[in-house]
Each structure stands twice: as structure tokens, then as C-alpha cells.
Design a protein around this nucleic acid. Sequence first.
DNA 1: ATTGCAAATGAGAATTGTTTCTATTTAAAT
DNA 2: ATTTAAATAGAAACAATTCTCATTTGCAAT
Lengths: 134, 134
Amino acid sequence: MTATDIKRAGLKVTLPRLKVLEVLENANPHHLSAEDVYKALLDTDDSVGLATVYRVLTQFESAGIVQRHNFADGHAVYELAPDEHHDHMVDVDSGQVLEFVNERIEKLQQEIADEHGFELVDHELVLYVRKRRK
Amino acid sequence: MTATDIKRAGLKVTLPRLKVLEVLENANPHHLSAEDVYKALLDTDDSVGLATVYRVLTQFESAGIVQRHNFADGHAVYELAPDEHHDHMVDVDSGQVLEFVNERIEKLQQEIADEHGFELVDHELVLYVRKRRK
DNA sequence: ATTGCAAATGAGAATTGTTTCTATTTAAAT
DNA sequence: ATTTAAATAGAAACAATTCTCATTTGCAAT
């Protein structure tokens, strides 16, 4: 992800946008709320206003640079758009988020949409899980 | 769904609770926001305060009487807990919500959680679709 | 290198959806 | 009927997000 991606989206390459991008790149875990991004930049020389963070994240989403997810607790998190799609698993106890891919589920979703006369535009699958005590 | 379900949950059978239940029963489409429920009762003789609607919906959720979902636009909707589980398909053009069931997807989710050493507590699957033009 | 201007920003106010507080009312056990 | 804990309505509080607008900045054309 570089300045080029920003330009390609028809957006000017500004310091705030580069900063937000940088934070997302170095994020671990991948998923950050707007507030998280804001806080990460607060201490730096060039912090970015919260309103701008929201604006930029929304623009990046439209541009396909980031993805937004709405988890069950009701607040949104963002992550850099991954090269290959994945779904999420949230540990309801720790709040930790894992990523996973399952080809068969992907395919089944296509089929289901198809059966109903639709084409699949997107989907959101989140498993809420708990560590199994054996 | 009756007064009995309310009692069984250890809640008093009050007019507001019965009213909210009634609205959910007659709802079409099934999915209503708290605001929707509130509005539906505004015109009736016995309207219910918005705060109460939220409170009652939350209690009903804990009691398993209703289910809450967070759709992509980020705000919560409620529906009467269905007899059998189903997932959702949202038409991105019309906003219409369809329900579907697919046993294989359900089973696959179990398996995936299992492979990672978790037990599945809950899940949320929403397909965003568009009418296929042939 | 400057200049001009549309686009972008920051700070705070406003809005939206939801939750909490509190004084009053009500269900239901006696 | 009386009592009492639970429930209610409405207001106020709250958190996340969006809007407003005066100021700043990227960058294209001098």
C-alpha cells in the first residue's frame, strides 16, 4: 500500500492520509477502530484530527484500500484490504480476533445466492467462539 | 410467543412488554430497529417510551425471546427468536432482507471452530447480494 | 519558484443511536 | 385492599460518528 493507491483513488496524497495508512500497515492485530488509529497518532509529531481519521477511513473504504467490519458489540473496525479474502472468528471471552479462510464455505455462499436468483456481491461471516476446555 | 414466555424469563407481565411483543409478532419484514418498534406504538392508545423499548428488547434478548443482529450500516435490528436458526441475505439495491438456512454451512462453521480449538458460541452470516440479470 | 484554487484539514458543535437516572406508577403476592 | 419490589416515562447522559466552516495544503499552471 503506497501513495500510489491513494492517487489511483482520485485523492490527494496528504500527510494525514499517509499517516493513517502507515498506522494500518504496522497494526497488530490488524483490526483497529477509528479511535485506535487516532490514538496511535496522537503522540507523533503529526497527529491527525479524529474527524479526519473517520473521513479518511471512509474514503479508503470506498477506494477499496481498507475494509470495514461491524462486530457484534456494535462498533466498527478497519483493516487494510487483504490480498485474499478471509473471515473472522471472535473469542467472546478475550475479544481476540482470528482470521480464517475456508474455500468450501465461500463456494457454498455463491451457490446459495445463486439458488435464490442473486449474485453474491459481498458477505460477512463472523464466528463467535470460546476456547474449548477438553 | 405469549405472556408465559415473559413470565418464564422472570419478568413481570406488563403492558409495554406485551405491546412490544405484539409489534414484533406482526412485523413484516421481521427485522425492526428499536426506533421502528417505538414508532409502531406511537399512534396506539398505549405508546411506550423509547427508553423502555430499548430496555425491553435487551431483556427479551437475554431471555432468548428475541435475537439481535448488527447489519452493515451499523445499527441493531431485532426479530422474534425463530424456531429454527437462519441466516440473512440482504439485497444491496432494494435493502430487502431474506432468510435462508443451509445445513452444510452450519456444519462447516462448527468444524472450523473445532479445528482451531474453539467451540462455536454463535455466528453471524450475512450475504450481500444483487438480483441476477439473466 | 510562485501563485491560485479546489480539495483537505482540525476543532468543535451537532447528530444519531443507545443507555442510564430518577421520580412516579404498576403488577402481583399477601 | 395493602404493600412492596419491579417497571415505567422522560430527561439527561453517553459514545460513536458526521457536519460546519475558517484555515491550510497539494499540486497544476504559470
